[in-house]
């Protein structure tokens, strides 16, 4: 037992620290100073936050003038760690041959990791700035193409961010 080095509280503290009171005063002064600093939080529904391009809000599908970019390759679905994405492909006569007949993201499963965006070979699914997600039932939480398709003009910040940093 002799070679065990003891490291008790009383060994670590010096005299003034053992007295507690000066340290307590230090702690109290710290919190007192905090009281006069500006707040981090905001009055949410009135004061809204506009995220930067780097923000990962709910994933959306990019909608171009001639339809969605998505070719329903299913890589997002495969990479999704939460199994939130379901894609069903169908054939189209366009050049891109296939398109998502059904594209559903279960927003109750989504964890906003952004893997779908990262893996997408067509830059067709990107993380939007939308952080306000409310639904009244599990069924409503499953977003189909009607809710997922967002015009490319609204996603410029994110696409710019991806081009610059990815």
């Amino acid at each position: 037992m002799a070679n065990i080095t003891s490291n008790t509280e009383s060994q670590r503290l010096n005299f003034w620290e053992k007295l507690y009171l000066p340290e307590i005063a230090r702690g109290l002064s710290l919190t007192l100073r905090q009281m006069f600093k500006p707040t981090f939080t905001r009055r949410y529904p009135e004061e809204r936050w506009n995220p930067e391009g780097s923000y990962r809000g709910r994933p959306v599908l990019v909608l171009e003038e001639d339809g969605e970019r998505c070719v329903a390759c299913g890589l997002c679905s495969r990479v999704c760690p939460a199994l939130a994405i379901e894609v069903r492909a169908a054939e189209t006569q366009d050049d891109k041959e296939r398109y998502p007949e059904k594209f559903e993201i279960n927003m109750l499963r989504c964890i906003y990791c952004g893997f779908c965006e990262e893996v997408c070979p067509e830059e067709a699914i990107v993380m939007s700035k939308d952080y306000e997600l409310v639904f009244g039932s599990q069924e409503e939480g499953i977003f189909g193409k009607d809710k997922l398709l967002v015009p490319v003009a609204q996603l410029q910040d994110r696409l710019e961010f991806l081009r610059q940093w990815r």
Binding site: A72, C73, G74, S77, R78, A89, A90, E91, E97, R98
Partner: peptide, 9 residues
Amino acid sequence: FRFKARVWE
């Protein structure tokens, strides 16, 4: 079968 599913699905 065309486009019915990905192989891994």
